[in-house]
């Protein structure tokens, strides 16, 4: 059982406050570490001990989190989530590959590296389709592509955008779902909470960061089996597994690595911070 929890953050959201308060209420000492103040010395030793018995990675910046996790894990500290999980979940293509390989229902997805190849990919999927950045969150730059003219314009804009990742075109079928999707919170091998995320009136995306509203979602055996399997194939941990209701059944489209759960906590009775803290206590050394 861990006694000291390293909470790695770079912005204190509602979730980080809730996690720290819960950890202290459960008798853990919390070492709050602002990643922006860190200097990661590759020859540093006893790093793990000075941080804590286990680390909870909660950086809002994906790459800050990834590098900190790589460092701490190399120095012998267990991090939730692991470097492997952070790598797979931080890249939508790696996530899709893992889901497809495991036979988990997921939308048809093609990746191309040039606008020409991306147009060819769109020709293979029905319009409308969805263009997403391969890394990113909160629905940022996720665009519905309704016809070839829109596709060409968006692809041209992406081609001219700085950043190597903008030249990776992740194109997905537009699943015929109701105007909502399902956010589930998985901790270890348990499904803790499930909520519908309803798209706001002026948007098709359901992200809570964009104003999506949450209501409770019944946990059916089908949903439970699917999301637990999805969490397992990306490596397991504390995860937000997102699913959609397609005409052919539930499909998993994304797995989030530093899951935000304020929306899920407000719509359900589940004590999500407690589940996460208890999981961290169990996994920590000592």
């Amino acid at each position: 059982m861990a006694k000291k929890l390293a909470l790695i953050y770079d912005r204190v959201r509602w979730e980080e406050k809730a996690l720290a308060e819960e950890a202290e209420a459960r008798g853990l000492s919390v070492n709050r570490i602002d990643a922006r103040t860190l200097l990661l010395d590759i020859f540093g030793d006893k790093v793990g001990e000075s941080f804590g018995d286990i680390a909870l990675q909660r950086c809002i910046s994906y790459y800050r989190g990834l590098h900190t996790t790589a460092y701490l894990e190399t120095k012998g500290l267990k991090v939730i989530n692991s470097l492997h999980v952070s790598t797979v979940c931080g890249n939508k293509f790696l996530t899709s590959l893992a889901l497809a390989r495991a036979g988990i229902a997921t939308p048809k997805t093609l990746v191309a590296f040039t606008p020409e190849a991306a147009m060819e990919a769109l020709g293979k999927l029905e319009y409308p389709a969805v263009l997403k950045p391969v890394t990113g969150s909160w629905g940022r730059f996720v665009a519905p592509i309704k016809d070839p003219d829109t596709a060409r314009a968006l692809l041209e804009m992406r081609e001219q955008s700085p950043g190597a990742l903008n030249q990776i075109y992740y194109i997905q079928e537009m699943v015929k779902r109701p105007p909502r999707d399902i956010r589930t919170i998985v901790v270890g091998d348990e499904l803790i909470a499930a909520v519908y995320r309803h798209a706001p009136p002026d948007d098709w995306r359901t992200n809570v960061a964009l104003g999506g509203k949450t209501t409770p979602c019944p946990i059916t055996p089908e949903l439970q089996e699917l999301v637990l399997k999805a969490a397992k194939v990306v490596g397991g941990g504390v995860l937000g597994v997102d699913a959609m209701e397609s005409p052919d059944g539930i499909q998993v489209h994304e797995v989030n690595n530093t899951v935000e759960f304020r929306g899920a906590a407000s719509a359900t009775d589940a004590n999500i911070p407690r589940a996460i803290v208890d999981y961290a206590r169990r996994l920590g050394r000592r």
Partner: peptide, 10 residues
């Protein structure tokens, strides 16, 4: 505060 970064999120 820092404005939102391109890799921010969950």
């Amino acid at each position: 505060a820092e404005t939102s970064g391109e890799d921010w999120g969950e």
